[in-house]
């Protein structure tokens, strides 16, 4: 066996650091609170992760394509408010497709700016974060949105229903993960996303329409956001205008935690699922050991920094390097 030199340990941490950190977290939480590893708690974590997880699936597409999407949080607020408002105006059967259409329109707009006009995705989606928030407030007039007849609508099945005991959000999350996972790993479109994110110029030289590929990654992201909005609206049947606020960073953290590179070209749906679960368990564990919810914000930030650091360290092959 090779000696575990200092560099060897650094290299191992750089490659597997997230898993190591996760195991330490889990053991710590389990010792601190017996309930942490109980079945119902684990189920609860997955269930409460579903909405963010659905959004993370879409952002995975965008990130692999070499871009960012910071607009998903406020876009999700938009979807939620719109579907709740339309529910009472045109009925759920029409409200759902209308909301999906409007959300996809927003995604197409971002995709056009980033893909075809080649604008920097950070700036575009950061701007859209506030612009869509403004749009949402305009739509709602600044008021909270509630369904009038909460008992009498079938609309609640997406967020509150279950099939053979498995909650609907988990089923929808799982199905979407399966379909998007297949698209990403098995279809020509998926392959092109990796090529465009990995080396856009080489993709162009191979005849891949780079702009179109980027455009579609944002459509996928918008579709996932719309689904998340549906789950959120259906679960609560009423909502504030700011329901998705801050989600963009949590979602990005999940994707990066799973191992997708911010530089594009790497990551998988499976890895993102792992990132989602790690994130869910850490949040849950912090609550169980009695930390206030706002402390989570600090932890989220720390986890993002850790994940980005490890991402770069993995590229260098060591944790720290004097140059670049």
């Amino acid at each position: 066996m090779a000696e575990l030199t200092k560099k060897g340990i650094g290299g191992f941490l750089a490659r597997q650091g997230i898993l190591v950190a996760f195991v330490i977290f889990m053991v710590g939480f389990a010792l601190a609170n017996q309930r942490f590893l109980a079945m119902d708690n684990i189920f609860g974590v997955i269930r409460s992760s579903a909405i963010l997880g659905v959004m993370a699936l879409g952002v995975t597409f965008v990130v692999i394509g070499g871009n960012l999407d910071l607009s998903v949080g406020s876009m999700m607020s938009f979807s939620t408010i719109v579907v709740l408002d339309l529910h009472d105006k045109i009925g759920p059967t029409l409200a759902i497709p209308a909301m999906f259409g409007l959300t996809l329109l927003l995604g197409a707009f971002i995709g056009f700016l980033v893909g075809y006009l080649k604008l920097n995705s950070l700036i575009v989606t950061l701007g859209m974060l506030s612009a869509i928030h403004g749009l949402t407030l305009t739509w709602s007039g600044g008021k909270n949105m509630d369904i009038a007849d909460k008992q009498g609508t079938w609309f609640s099945i997406f967020g509150q229903g279950d099939i053979v005991g498995i909650p609907m959000p988990i089923i929808i999350f799982g199905l979407l993960a399966l379909v998007l996972g297949l698209i990403l790993s098995k279809t020509p479109f998926g392959r092109k996303i990796y090529a465009v994110g990995g080396n856009g110029q080489a993709a162009t030289f191979s005849g891949i329409p780079r702009a179109r590929v980027v455009f579609f990654t944002y459509l996928v992201s918008a579709f996932c956001v719309a689904t998340a909005g549906l789950l959120q609206a259906s679960r609560s049947l009423g909502s504030q205008n700011t329901v998705g606020q801050g989600y963009e960073l949590e979602v990005l953290a999940m994707v990066i935690l799973g191992g997708a590179s911010l530089l594009g070209g790497s990551g998988t749906i499976l890895k993102t699922l792992i990132g989602v679960l790690i994130f869910g368990f850490i949040e849950n564990g912090l609550l169980l050991v009695g930390l206030e919810f706002y402390v989570q914000d600090i932890v989220v930030w720390a986890v993002i920094i850790l994940a980005v650091w490890l991402d770069i360290a993995a590229k260098r092959g060591r944790l720290w390097s004097p140059i670049a």
Binding site: R191, A195, N199, A202, A203
Partner: peptide, 16 residues
Amino acid sequence: GQGLVLGMNCRDNMTL
């Protein structure tokens, strides 16, 4: 810079 996606495997590069 233009010929290969360096992070992609050999087969996927070739059939791109």
